[in-house]
Amino acid sequence: MRGVIVGPGVMGQTLAGAFRQLYPHEDLVLLGPPSERRAQLARELRAFEASTPAEASPADWLLLALKPQKALSILPTLRPLLKKETLVLSVMAGITLEHLRVGLGHERLVRSMPNTPGRIGAGITVWTSTGLSAEERLTVEAFLGALGAHVQVEDEAYLDMATALSGTGPAYVFLFMEALIEAGVHLGLPRHLAEQLVVETLQGSVVYYRAASRGAALLRQEVTSPGGTTAEALYYLEKAGFRPAISRAIWAAYQRALALRPPLPQE
Rank of each mutant, 00 (worst) to 15 (best):
L82Q: 02
W127V: 05
L75Y: 14
A39V: 01
V91W: 09
P68K: 13
L144A: 03
L147T: 06
E135S: 04
S90E: 12
H99F: 10
Q69W: 14
I74F: 12
G131W: 07
V110D: 05
L97T: 10
V88Y: 07
P80R: 13
P117D: 05
V88N: 05
F48Y: 14
S133Y: 05
P117G: 05
A65E: 09
S35C: 07
A71N: 08
V91Y: 10
A149N: 01
I74V: 15
S133W: 05
M113F: 08
L147H: 04
L97S: 08
V110C: 08
T116A: 12
N115T: 09
S57I: 11
L41N: 12
P76I: 15
V151L: 09
L100Q: 14
L82T: 10
R46C: 00
E49G: 02
W127R: 03
L41T: 12
L75K: 13
E85S: 08
S112M: 05
T86N: 03
T96P: 02
V140C: 02
I74E: 12
P58F: 14
L104S: 02
S73D: 14
L75E: 13
F48P: 02
G148P: 04
K67Q: 15
G131L: 06
I74M: 14
L66S: 12
I124N: 04
A54W: 10
L63M: 00
G145K: 02
T77N: 11
L97V: 11
F143R: 06
L62N: 00
H150W: 01
T125M: 02
A65Q: 08
G121H: 02
G131F: 03
L41Y: 12
L132H: 01
T77A: 15
G121K: 04
G145L: 01
S129D: 08
P58L: 15
A50C: 15
A54Q: 14
G145H: 01
